[in-house]
Nucleic acid binder design. Structure first.
Lengths: 137, 137
DNA sequence: GTAGACTCTGTAGTGACTACAGAGTCAAGA
DNA sequence: TCTTGACTCTGTAGTCACTACAGAGTCTAC
């Protein structure tokens, strides 16, 4: 059993535990070209390096921030190309930020409607319900 | 060409335009049991009634409020059963409201990180980028 | 030698649609 | 009557970002 910090190639489960990523998701990211194909052992087992750990963490962090895989692919291209400019990345980030703000505004609108409607509910066991009426009207 | 307000059964495209719902989505809702199967013409064309219009609008309004189809199925069961109590609907609505609030909080956290990171960007055409560094680190 | 834990592959399922192909139907105009 | 074009029918596949599973192979500790 390899312990944390020991160097050498990692197997799928090790990469999963090092990154906190679901083991199947790793294979998925490989399949869709987000993670480079790792070298294989004689038996065909994937052998991941620190490079893969770093890239996977990059992907996961960007996912946490709500970037789509498509967005992340773009960011990775910029990184890989070595030609990325701060301006390009900034533009992408700000586009995404605008998206996030739109979603927040939408959800807040929804929240207001739901809260208002729920407040009108008596909570009694009567068959009339302002929520259903609001939806039906 | 039937004009708005004329009674009589509606075809798929008419129901779509009356409700603002995508025509394929109507068929999907039927398939998954959200909309009752309408009677058919001799040629097999669906013939929708005002009942279908009302139900479809109910579904669309609930979708706008972010209820899942599963949630809506529950609401429709309560409506159809005729046994729904305000208390049940209120509980569902409040569960959903809590969900929405969680999502808002998540997005706000994301927004803060994105905004802070984007601010650090010079926007210049230099290859170093604090956004990418934040993601990679 | 064997048990159990791992890995491999391909495939199918999730939710909520959306799109398309190929066939049939309908109504208006020539 | 015929044709044209717009509609409708069905089944199926694609979308996104995974997740789960089956059946086979491999590795390692005892």
């Amino acid at each position: 059993m390899r312990t944390t910090g020991t160097p050498g190639p990692l197997k799928r489960a090790e990469l999963a535990s090092r990154s906190g990523c679901n083991i199947e998701t790793i294979r998925y990211y490989e399949k869709v070209g987000m993670l480079p194909d790792p070298p294989r052992s004689a038996a065909g087992y994937r052998l991941y390096s620190e490079h893969h750990v770093a890239r996977l963490r990059f992907i996961l962090r960007a996912r946490e921030l709500g970037f789509s895989l498509e967005d992340i692919r773009g960011l990775l291209d910029l990184v890989d190309g070595g030609t990325q400019t701060c301006a390009e990345v900034k533009a992408r980030t700000e586009r995404h930020l605008a998206d996030v703000r739109t979603r927040i505004a939408d959800l807040k609108r929804i929240e207001r409607v739901l809260a208002r409607t729920a407040r009108q509910c008596s909570g009694d066991a009567v068959p009339e319900c302002p929520v259903l009426e609001a939806l039906a009207s």
